[in-house]
Every structure is written in C-alpha cells, then in structure tokens.
Simulated assay, not measured.
Amino acid sequence: MSLNNSLSLESAVGKVPALTLMFWLIKILATTLGETAGDALSMSMNLGYLLSTLIFAGLFLVAVVAQIKASKFHPFLYWTTIIATTTVGTTLADFATRSLGIGYTGGSTLLFALLLASLGVWYKTMGSVSVSTLSSSKAEMFYWVTIMFSQTLGTALGDWTADTAGLGYVGAALIFGSLLAVVVIAYYFTQLSRTFLFWSAFILTRPLGAVVGDFLDKPLSAGGLALSRYSASASLIFMIIACILLFPQRAGATAKH
C-alpha cells in the first residue's frame, strides 16, 4: 500500500495556506516582487548576481528555519518565505545564465532537471508530493527546496521566452497566462491529478511574475515601462500586505499518517 493510500481520514491544520483564489493572487504578486527586488539589489545597487544571491540565500535560510519551527500557520511568515525564494531564485538564475554563461536555454534545462530531481527524491522518500501531506519537518524541507528550484526555473524560463524566443514581455505574459488558464480549465473539467495541477500552476506563476516584473522595470527600448525598481517593489509589497490583511487566509488541512 502506498503512503497516499495509508493516510487516514483524520486531518490537522497545516502550516501552509489553503489553495484559494487569494493564494494564487498573492503568489503572482510575490513572484513579480521577486523579480523587481532581485534586480534592484543586483543591478540598481550594483551588488552583482553572486553577492545578491548570497544575501537572499541567507534570508531564505532564516525564513525557512523559522517557518519549519513554527507550530502553526502564520500568513506573514509563510509569504515572507515565499518572497525569499523568489528573490534568491531571480539572482541565482541570472547568475547561472549570465555570469556563468550557460544562457537561458541551458539554464532553463538545468533548472528543470533539478526541479524534477527534487520532486522525484521527495516522492521516493515520502511517498507523495502533495501539500496535504506536509506533516513533518522533512516533508516541509522537501517542499521549500522544490519551491526554490521552481522559482529559479521560472526566472530563466521567463527570460528565455521573452528574449531568446523573441516574444517580448507582453507576449511572454500572454503565453504563461494562457497556460495557467489551461490548468484552471483542467482543474474544473477533468480528473487530472490535483497534485500535478497544483505544481503545474505553481511553476507557471513564476515565469509569469518574472516577465511582468521585467515589463515594469526594464527600459522602454527593451520593451519595458522603465519604472523604478524600488517604487515597483514597494508597491508590490504594499499590495501583498493589503491582501493578507483584508482577506485573511486560513491554513490548509494536512492529513495525519
């Protein structure tokens, strides 16, 4: 009997939010913030991709440890950890694709392989990659490592679609937005695995946020709006906080073994 089948009907309140429409809205805002804030540190402040990655990686580790040690769901802590994964994902992807010279195609391929490996090891170890089974620190660690890889992949994939594929930021946003719409349709009208659909949507929101973030702060000559990375990041932070305060989130249920 697989681990999925051995889960009892008993459930407990988890430490991640329930998958509501507000969850996905905040997720897209957070991924967009990851792009603008990551670029603000590495480009506007001229700290470079490597140093910026090290700074954000430190923040990510602190946030993850706090999240895993927490005894219950804390909205601000959870979304701070998500934002930390998006910022480190932005600078790490830029470091790999630009500083190491492997390009957007090579970076996207490598990061996609790492993401699949993370999911594979998680499944082999725990028997499931569903967020409803995050009932142990080990499962949570797999969850956050997988999210970090998905956020990093999203940056490289967004850049590849907008630049290498020549679709531009608006064109790339339409592509990823359309793919998300397909996932939503599949959720409501098919019997496809909910776990598969969750991770598909989770992964696709990152390149969507990446190209929207680039559209906001890249120069007019590059197809962007040339907005200040600082003001764009501050506006996104304000919107995320407003969403959390105005639309309180409940924790999702976690199945007990």
Rank of each mutant, 00 (worst) to 15 (best):
A253F: 03
Y104P: 06
V211C: 06
R98D: 06
T90R: 04
C243T: 08
K72D: 09
L25D: 04
L3P: 00
S118D: 04
M126E: 15
Y49K: 00
A40N: 04
A232T: 08
S135Y: 09
W24G: 07
T190F: 07
S11F: 10
L167A: 03
S71T: 12
S132P: 04
V121T: 11
G224T: 08
M1T: 01
F56Y: 14
S233E: 08
I203S: 09
T53W: 04
S228I: 03
T20Y: 00
L116V: 15
S6N: 13
P17D: 08
V129R: 01
V145F: 07
L47H: 07
K72W: 12
P248V: 08
Y143C: 14
F56V: 12
S200V: 15
M43A: 06
L246E: 09
G223C: 02
T146C: 11
V64F: 05
W122N: 04
L204A: 00
S137L: 07
S221Y: 02
F112W: 10
G209T: 00
A255V: 04
T195N: 05
G103V: 13
W122G: 05
G107A: 06
L197S: 03
Y123M: 04
E140L: 13
G127A: 10
H74Q: 11
G177C: 10
K256F: 03
D217Q: 12
T254H: 05
L180S: 07
M22Q: 09
V131E: 03
T155R: 05
E35Q: 12
L77A: 10
S11Q: 14
P219L: 00
T164E: 05
T152D: 03
F73P: 06
T133D: 14
Y169C: 07
S132T: 14
Y104M: 13
P207W: 05
L245F: 04
L111Y: 02
A226E: 11
F23C: 01
S228C: 11
S99E: 15
F189W: 12
T105Q: 03
L245R: 08
T190E: 03
V129Q: 04
L9G: 15
F56T: 10
Y143S: 13
A173K: 05
T90F: 03
I203V: 15
T105M: 09
D39N: 15
P248M: 14
M126A: 07
G127V: 11
A181Q: 08
G101F: 04
A234M: 07
W160M: 15
L19C: 14
T161W: 10
F198S: 08
D217V: 12
L47N: 05
G38C: 08
G48Y: 01
A113E: 02
Y187R: 07
F56P: 06
A40E: 10
R194N: 11
F202S: 10
M148A: 15
M148N: 09
L77K: 07
L134A: 10
A18F: 02
R206D: 00
S136Q: 01
A57M: 13
T80K: 00
T125K: 10
L50V: 09
S193P: 14
L33Q: 06
G89I: 04
S130K: 01
I68G: 07
G168V: 08
I241H: 01
N5V: 01
W79T: 15
S150T: 11
K218Y: 13
Y230F: 09
T254W: 03
I244T: 05
S42K: 00
V184F: 12
M141F: 14
G120L: 10
K69R: 15
L19T: 12
T20Q: 02
G14A: 04
K256Q: 09
T32E: 06
K27E: 01
A165Y: 07
T164S: 09
F238M: 12
